[in-house]
Design a protein around this nucleic acid. Structure first.
Length: 423
RNA sequence: GGAGAAUUCGCCUAGUGGCCUAUGGCGCCAGCUUGGAAAGUUGGUUGGGUGCAAGCCCUCGGGGGUUCGAAUCCCCCAUUCUCCGCCA
């Protein structure tokens, strides 16, 4: 949710942001008007309520004669108060409906435009060249007996899979390496619930336009989360957290569930886009003024992981129109996928400034003792999808895959995954 | 799934219709005291909304109701605990 004070003092800033996103500008005018109506209705109600409170207080000390009259007055006031309260509540509902639709104010420097208007910040690593016919991760997965897509479909349908043998171990190794790195950087590990209440899902901003992407369990009124970000953001909801010793950083591990309803026939081959995968997610609660520095740190940690996996990648600054509603800025790191001869997203990090925290009511105490809304940031540190890039980039002519050096300690020292090898 | 109990300002706790503008303790903050501390002592200490401000309104797990008036009475929901039942 955007800052109501900003809406009152400087609606043009919000309009400019909406424009950059290609979102509705008139929504801002509607919100300003609704805000004025609400405050008027609220004042009316509170004035009447004050009168009612004062009258009610007189009753107990009144003598018999005036008592009956006071009670009659009180009865009359009570109906007026009820009506005024109703109006105020309606005005607030209307304001909420509008204000919740306004997306986060994008930060200065974010490229304007849509999905294809990203700016490439840098490219790192060397793309591999193969003097043999390269295999894609599906072929490698079959050859090495590490990914079983056929049986995944048999059990659960398309976009499901089994990770098997070294494939399963590779994913756990990757997650462990990421977790170690995160712990060294001061993150607290959290294994999070993957079923959450509607209020939490709404608070994190995932129940908006893309709610059909989310699995829902009607029998229990619970949502399956597509990222542990949901649980991590909800973790401190309705709390006043202590940021005096620095930011609170969590590394949340969870399985993630996505319906992929909008993705049509895209990426149907392999495990690039699946309904279920695992992810280690970084999440920071921080003072708003430090959020942009933290964002760079999250990105640096992501790049560190990509480098440990010896993957060629590039970093892009996502355009305003392609930001999620909570994000004020987003960087994606995309790894080179040889079989597709293109870069594919492996990590994403968003600075949600105070937008998400305001919805979830996460505050901290400033040095002057006042409370203020915290800022939240998130960023991927490892996902199942990384296996695609690792397998493809490190494949060798005989179909074996060289294990990146940094990962070997997590795989019992193994240096290569070979077709003939069983574990 | 069934039965019972509980939920009060960071923690514990008093409070069964108006004097609750919520008691007391612990913790924390500040003052006094001290060479400095401890002890002692005095004061402060839930948050939110609105308003230029004084102020006013809301906040006793959440929502609704009864009443002139609700922490207190009624209903629904959530969470926790105990017991029973079932179960990977």
């Amino acid at each position: 949710m955007i800052d109501a004070n900003l809406l009152r003092d400087n609606p043009d800033v919000i309009k400019a942001s909406q424009r950059a996103r290609g979102a509705s500008e008139s929504l801002v005018d509607d919100a300003v008007a609704a805000d004025v109506s609400w405050r008027k209705a609220l004042t009316d109600f509170e004035t009447l309520r004050a009168e009612q409170n004062a009258k009610a207080k007189l009753v107990s000390s009144a003598d018999k004669d005036s008592r009956a009259a006071l009670i009659a007055e009180g009865q009359e006031l009570a109906t007026r108060v009820k009506a005024a309260e109703q109006l105020a509540a309606e005005a607030q509902t209307k304001l909420d409906e509008i204000i919740w639709q306004i997306e986060n104010v994008v930060l200065a420097g974010v490229p304007s435009g849509g999905e294809d208007d990203y700016v490439v910040i840098r490219e790192e690593g060397t793309k591999p060249t193969f003097n043999f016919e390269l295999r894609d991760h599906v072929a490698l997965g079959e050859l090495l007996d590490v990914i079983d897509i056929e049986r995944g479909a048999k059990i659960s349908g398309s976009r499901f899979y089994f990770l098997k043998g070294w494939g399963a171990r590779l994913e756990l190794a990757l997650m462990n390496m990421a977790l170690d790195q995160a712990a060294q950087a001061g993150f607290t590990a959290l294994i999070t619930p993957t079923l959450v209440k509607p209020s939490v899902m709404a608070g994190t901003g995932f129940l908006g336009a893309h709610s059909d992407e989310i699995y829902y369990l009607p029998a229990d009124d619970l949502y399956l989360t597509g990222t542990s970000e949901v649980a991590l953001a909800g973790y401190h909801s309705d709390e006043i957290i202590d940021l005096s010793e620095g930011p609170l950083r969590y590394a949340g591990w969870s399985t993630c569930y996505r319906r992929e309803a909008g993705s049509g026939g895209r990426d149907t081959r392999g495990i690039l886009r699946v309904h279920q995968f695992n992810k280690l997610e970084m999440f920071s609660y921080i003072k708003p003024e430090d959020s942009e520095v933290e964002h760079q740190k999250l990105l640096a940690w992501q790049e560190q992981m990509l480098q440990k996996c010896e993957l060629p990648y590039r970093v892009i600054d996502t355009a305003a129109g392609d930001l999620g509603s909570s994000a004020a800025r987003k960087y994606d790191a995309e790894a080179w996928v040889p079989s597709q001869e293109t870069y594919r997203e492996l990590t994403s990090t968003s600075n949600c400034t105070t937008y998400q925290a305001r919805r979830l009511n996460v505050r901290y105490r400033k040095e002057n003792g006042k409370t203020a809304t915290a800022a939240t940031l998130n960023g991927t540190l490892a996902t199942t999808r990384w296996l695609v890039a690792i397998l493809e980039n490190h494949q060798q002519e005989d179909g074996s895959v060289r294990i990146p050096v940094a990962l070997r300690p997590y795989l019992g020292g193994a240096e290569v995954i070979s077709p003939k090898q069983k574990n």
